[in-house]
Amino acid sequence: MPGAIAAFGRNDLRNIRRDSLLAGIVFGPFIYAATMWLLPMLTRYLDREHGFDLVPYHPLILSAFIVVGPIAVLGAVCGMLLMDDKDQRTLAALRVTPAPPMTYPLYRAATTIAATTLSLVAAMALTGQVPAEIVVASVPITLLCGLNAAMVGFGLAALARNKVEGLAIVRAIGMLLFGLPMVPFFFDHPAMLGFGFIPTYWPAKAFWEVWDGGNPWPYLAAGAIYSGAISWWLLKRLASQKA
Rank of each mutant, 00 (worst) to 15 (best):
L176E: 08
F195S: 01
G213Q: 13
R171S: 14
A168K: 14
A157P: 06
V183F: 12
L156R: 00
N215S: 15
G146E: 02
L156I: 13
A168W: 10
P199Y: 07
L177A: 06
F185R: 00
L193R: 12
I169W: 09
Y219R: 02
G214N: 11
G196V: 03
P218E: 11
P199M: 10
I173M: 12
M151T: 08
A157T: 07
M192Y: 05
I198T: 02
N162V: 11
G213H: 10
L144C: 05
V170R: 00
P184N: 06
G214S: 12
S231K: 01
S227H: 01
S231M: 14
G194D: 07
F195R: 04
A149Y: 06
G214Q: 12
W211S: 09
S231L: 14
F207T: 03
F178R: 00
L193A: 10
L167G: 04
A222T: 12
A224I: 03
P184T: 05
H189P: 02
P181K: 03
L177F: 15
T200F: 03
E209G: 05
F186Y: 15
I198E: 01
D212S: 15
A191D: 01
I173K: 04
F186G: 07
L144T: 00
A168M: 15
W208C: 09
K205L: 12
F195D: 03
G153M: 03
A149Q: 04
G155F: 09
F154C: 06
R171G: 15
V152K: 01
S231Q: 08
F187Y: 15
I173D: 01
N148R: 02
A157F: 09
G153W: 00
M175T: 11
L180C: 08
R161V: 10
F195E: 04
G174S: 10
E209L: 15
S231Y: 07
E165L: 07
P181Q: 07
L177Y: 10
D188F: 08
G166Y: 02
V170A: 04
V170S: 08
A224N: 05
M175Y: 14
N148L: 11
E209W: 09
P218H: 10
A191Q: 01
L220Q: 04
A149E: 06
A172C: 09
V164F: 14
L220P: 00
P218Q: 13
